[in-house]
Computed example of a mutant assay.
Amino acid sequence: MLSLLHHPNLVSLVGYCADGDQRLLVYEYMALGSLADHLLDINADQIPLSWHRRMKVAHGTAKGLEYLHEKANPPVIYRDLKSPNILLDEEYNPKLSDFGLAKLGPVGGKTHISTRVMGTYGYCAPEYIRTGQLTIKTDVYSFGVFLLELITGKRAVDSNRTANEQILVNWAKPMIRDRRYHELVDPLLRGEYPEKDLSQAVGVAAMCLQEEDTVRPYMSDAVVALGFLAEVPAGCEEKPSTVPQKKEAEDPSLTNSTKQDESTFDRQRVVAEAIEWGAMRQKQKAQTQGKATDSGCIIAPTEGNMV
Results as ranks from 00 to 15, higher is better:
7 H>R: 01
9 N>R: 11
15 G>V: 11
15 G>K: 10
16 Y>C: 09
20 G>L: 02
29 Y>I: 09
34 S>Y: 01
37 D>P: 04
42 I>W: 08
43 N>P: 00
54 R>K: 09
55 M>S: 08
56 K>R: 13
58 A>D: 03
58 A>Y: 09
58 A>E: 04
61 T>N: 03
64 G>M: 01
65 L>S: 08
66 E>F: 00
69 H>T: 09
69 H>D: 01
70 E>C: 02
74 P>A: 11
78 Y>S: 01
78 Y>H: 06
79 R>Q: 07
79 R>Y: 11
79 R>N: 06
83 S>K: 04
84 P>F: 10
87 L>T: 10
89 D>R: 00
91 E>D: 13
93 N>E: 12
97 S>R: 03
98 D>F: 12
100 G>K: 07
103 K>N: 00
103 K>A: 09
108 G>K: 04
109 G>Q: 08
110 K>D: 14
112 H>A: 13
113 I>N: 06
123 Y>R: 02
128 Y>G: 05
132 G>D: 11
138 T>N: 04
138 T>R: 04
139 D>K: 03
140 V>A: 06
147 L>D: 11
147 L>E: 10
148 L>A: 10
151 I>H: 06
153 G>C: 05
153 G>N: 07
157 V>H: 12
161 R>Y: 04
162 T>S: 15
163 A>I: 14
167 I>G: 00
169 V>D: 06
172 A>H: 06
180 R>W: 07
181 Y>H: 15
181 Y>F: 15
183 E>Q: 15
186 D>V: 07
188 L>D: 12
194 P>V: 03
195 E>M: 06
196 K>Y: 11
199 S>V: 03
202 V>W: 06
202 V>R: 10
202 V>S: 08
203 G>I: 06
215 V>F: 12
226 L>I: 04
231 E>C: 02
231 E>I: 07
239 K>S: 13
241 S>K: 11
247 K>T: 12
251 D>R: 05
252 P>Y: 07
256 N>P: 00
257 S>G: 00
259 K>P: 00
268 Q>S: 14
268 Q>W: 14
269 R>W: 15
272 A>Y: 09
284 Q>C: 03
285 K>V: 07
287 Q>P: 00
292 A>G: 14
295 S>L: 00
299 I>Q: 13
302 T>M: 06
